[in-house]
Structures are given as structure tokens and as C-alpha cells.
Simulated scan of single mutants.
Amino acid sequence: MMTAMAAMLVFTAACGNNGGNEASTGNNGNGSATNAPATEKPAEQADKKLSGEIKVDGSSTVFPLTEAAAEEFRAVQPDVRVPVGVSGTGGGFKQFCAGEIAIADASRPIKDEEAAKCKEAGIAFTELSVAFDGLSVVVSKENDFIDHLTVEELNKIFKTGSTVTKWSDVREGWPAEDIVMFSPGADSGTYDYFNEAILDKEGIRNENISFSEDDNTLVVGISGSKYGIGYFGYAYYEENQDKLKVVPIDGGNGAVEPTYETIKDGSYAPLSRPLFIYVSNKEMERPEVSEFVNFYINNIGSMAGEVGYVALPDEQYAEQAAKLK
């Protein structure tokens, strides 16, 4: 038995020396390549388990996208926490430019005055487009008289200074019932976009209207009022189609209903819009932030449709990824 064990030790040592020679020379001794696994990575390139917290806040419209990305990222890096808030686009930029969060969700581009505050605070950032959205005008399922609305009629309903109070004031033949309005709050990028695209920046009226930064609150209010009307991102309409009716909008070329196709090709005008995330360049120096943002951009296209948004063309995602380099 001892003789056999000694023989085995000699054999094992010989194999170990031969393996070491092949590893160090990169070949099998006669100049041909060894059969090392193709997936083997140098130590510095090996996947690392990361940890930490990445704070995100801002647009309630972009929230479903970022939440989806955070959930998928958790499967890859379970020790990285990504809490996502919904204080509205404006509220998100306030925190972002104060250095309180790493990423701001935004349903509109950053304003000049917001960018100036970031600059004053020494916060450089990168703007990344993540998907398209179609801001959707909705009414209750009980509403049986609205078939479409023009941009002019939306102005009669929502614009500050308007004297229109009843549906019969909007279009002849409609009921003489009070219009009950619902709108995202002034900190919302959706509010800003609607004000700019529909109301020529003149502002939304304050009488007989309910404001909320929470789109789910708006859903409850609109669906519960036969004569109510409001607007928010397409994802919230799609999620609540059983309670709400979407209103086709005539921007001058006929009434168009928001769908994946009309949002993507721009025919749902003027309410198709791009969505963004803004990332602090300093925060990107943290490996967990860099990893998450790259994951977001490289994967959000496949997630967008699942949460009610329209993915950008592949070449646009490639352009966003190039910004991160």
C-alpha cells in the first residue's frame, strides 16, 4: 500500500509541474495554443459583487421604468439598494442639484435655471434618453359624449384665464355639466410638458381642478367622475384601461389616439415626448452607480414595453451608452 501511495504522489507531482509549465508559457511546449476556457477572465476583469445605495427621485412618469431597471439589477447585484422616489421632475432636480441623490428621473429636459443651480453646486451631469411616452388625456369610462378633443378645446378646458366651466361651453351638444379637472402638480414634468405643448406656456387654471404628484390619485379621481378629465403618462392609462377611456387628440392633422405605434412614429402630436434620467458624473465614479446606469441603458429597451412605454431605436441606445464611456 505504501509503495502504491508513493507512486501516486510521484505521478501527481509530475502532472502538476507539466500544468504549471503550460500555464506560464501559454502553449503546450511545441508552440501550439493550449485549450484554456474561453470564458476565463483576468482577475481585474472578473465580475465583482457590489454593495451600497443609489438614491433616485423625480418624475412619476419615469418611475415605472427606473423601478423595473432597479428590480432587474437586484437579481445581478443583490447587495445594491436602489430606492426610487416620486417627488416629480422639478422635485427630483431640486434634490439632484443639492447633491442629495445620484440620479434624477425626468419627463422633460432640465431647465436652464435648474442647470445653473447644479453648476453653482459643482454638480456636473450626463443626460440620458431612456424611452418615449405619449402624454394621454383621459376621461371616465362613464363618459359617453367625448369622441376626441382638439388642441383648441383643451385650451378652453385647462388654460388659465379661460371662462369655460361646462362641457356645453366646449362643444355644442355636449351636456351642460360642470367640467371636473385633474392635473399633475406644478413640480411635475408632465405638467410642464402639457403647459408647453398644449397651452403655449400660459399655465393651467386653478379653479375647479385637483392637483396631485401621484398619478394613481389622478386615476382614482378621473375614473370616479363622469364629467372629469385629466392627463398623465401613457403607462398609467394602459394600466387602468378598465377604468378610463383615452381621448384621441387632434393636433391639426386629424384625431390620433396614443398607441405604441403612434407614439413611436410621432403621429401622436404634439403629446409624444422623450423621457430621461440625469446622472451625477461624480456619483458615476462609484462602481455600483456606474454598473447600474450601464445596466439601465443596455437593458431598458427590452423592459420599456412591459411597463407601458415605447423603446428608443437601437441606434439611440447605442448613442446613450457611448456617452457613459
Score class of each variant (00 low, 15 high):
97 C>M: 03
118 C>A: 03
74 R>L: 11
113 E>P: 03
112 D>I: 15
127 E>Y: 00
121 A>G: 02
91 G>H: 02
86 V>F: 12
139 V>S: 03
111 K>Y: 10
124 A>D: 15
140 S>H: 12
140 S>M: 11
141 K>S: 12
145 F>G: 05
85 G>M: 07
83 P>S: 13
74 R>V: 12
148 H>F: 13
140 S>N: 14
95 Q>H: 11
133 D>R: 08
112 D>G: 13
130 V>I: 14
92 G>D: 00
142 E>V: 09
73 F>H: 02
113 E>M: 01
74 R>F: 13
137 V>Y: 11
85 G>W: 07
135 L>T: 15
81 R>M: 14
117 K>F: 04
79 D>M: 09
141 K>E: 12
101 I>T: 02
110 I>P: 06
132 F>D: 02
150 T>H: 12
77 Q>A: 11
124 A>E: 14
103 I>S: 04
141 K>C: 12
74 R>S: 11
100 E>I: 00
89 T>W: 00
139 V>R: 06
92 G>H: 00
85 G>K: 06
87 S>Q: 07
129 S>Q: 09
109 P>D: 05
82 V>D: 06
76 V>K: 10
108 R>W: 00
145 F>N: 03
144 D>K: 12
135 L>V: 15
102 A>C: 10
78 P>L: 15
87 S>N: 09
150 T>F: 12
106 A>P: 05
73 F>V: 03
133 D>Y: 01
95 Q>W: 15
92 G>I: 01
132 F>M: 04
82 V>R: 09
88 G>A: 00
142 E>N: 13
74 R>N: 13
85 G>A: 07
132 F>T: 05
113 E>H: 00
144 D>F: 10
138 V>Q: 03
87 S>T: 12
125 F>L: 01
113 E>L: 02
72 E>F: 08
100 E>D: 06
109 P>K: 03
124 A>P: 10
149 L>Y: 13
112 D>R: 13
130 V>R: 05
99 G>L: 09
93 F>V: 13
123 I>G: 02
108 R>S: 07
97 C>Q: 00
102 A>V: 06
139 V>L: 01
115 A>N: 04
89 T>V: 02
97 C>R: 06
